[in-house]
C-alpha cells in the first residue's frame, strides 16, 4: 500500500517536473528546439506501467499543460492522448527494443503529436510556424529519450517500486 502511494507520487512529481521544464523561460532560438518533455514521460510510463498511466491520465496532464502554456484548451490534451494511444499500441514491442530503436519510434510518435497540434492550430487559426521547424522538437525529444529512459528507470529501481 505504501509502495503504491509512493509510486503514484513519483508519477505525479515526474509530471510536475516536466510541466516546469515545459514552461521554463529559454532564449528565443532555443524555444524552437524545446523537447516535448511531457510526451517523453508519458511514453515512459505507458510503456512500463500502462495500468497506472493511460490515455485518460495523458489527457488530464495535457489539459494542465494547456493551462500552463496558455494555449487553447484540449490542444496538448489531444496531442498527449494520441501519444499515449500510440505508445500503448506499441508498448510490447517497444519493451524489447534497444534504447536507440526506441528513440526512433519516439521520434515518430512525438512527430505525429506535433503534426496533430499543428493541424489543430491551423484549424483554429492560432499562431503557428509556417516552416517545417515545428517538427524540430521531435528530433530533440528523440535525442533525449535515452536520458529519460535511464533516469526514470534508475529512479524507479532505486526506490524499488516495481
Amino acid at each position: 500500500m505504501a509502495g503504491l502511494v509512493r509510486f503514484n507520487s513519483l508519477i505525479v512529481s515526474s509530471f510536475i517536473v516536466t510541466g516546469l521544464l515545459a514552461i521554463v523561460p529559454m532564449p528565443q532560438w532555443a524555444m524552437y528546439y524545446r523537447p516535448e518533455w511531457v510526451a517523453l514521460v508519458v511514453i515512459y510510463w505507458v510503456i512500463n506501467n500502462p495500468e497506472r498511466v493511460g490515455i485518460g491520465v495523458a489527457w488530464v496532464v495535457g489539459i494542465i499543460v494547456d493551462a500552463l502554456t496558455g494555449s487553447l484548451f484540449g490542444l496538448h490534451a489531444l496531442g498527449l492522448a494520441l501519444v499515449a494511444y500510440l505508445a500503448l499500441r506499441l508498448r510490447l514491442r517497444l519493451r524489447l527494443f534497444s534504447v536507440s530503436r526506441q528513440a526512433s519510434v519516439v521520434l515518430v510518435i512525438v512527430g505525429l503529436q506535433l503534426l496533430l497540434i499543428q493541424w489543430l492550430q491551423f484549424l483554429f487559426d492560432l499562431p503557428r510556424g509556417t516552416s517545417m521547424m515545428f517538427l524540430a522538437p521531435a528530433i530533440t525529444s528523440a535525442l533525449l529519450w535515452p536520458l529519460a529512459w535511464v533516469l526514470l528507470g534508475g529512479i524507479v529501481r532505486s526506490l524499488d517500486l516495481n
Binding site: I63, A67, L78
Partner: peptide, 30 residues
C-alpha cells in the same frame, strides 16, 4: 471541447486551471 472554447464556454474552467498553473509559473520564475 475545443469548439466550446472558441465560444468562450470554458472561461470558468480556464480561470480555475489558471489557479493551478500559478504555482508552476512562480516556480519556473524562481
Amino acid at each position: 471541447m475545443i469548439a466550446d472554447n472558441r465560444f468562450g464556454y470554458m472561461d470558468h474552467a480556464r480561470q480555475a486551471l489558471g489557479l493551478i498553473a500559478t504555482p508552476f509559473h512562480w516556480l519556473a520564475d524562481t
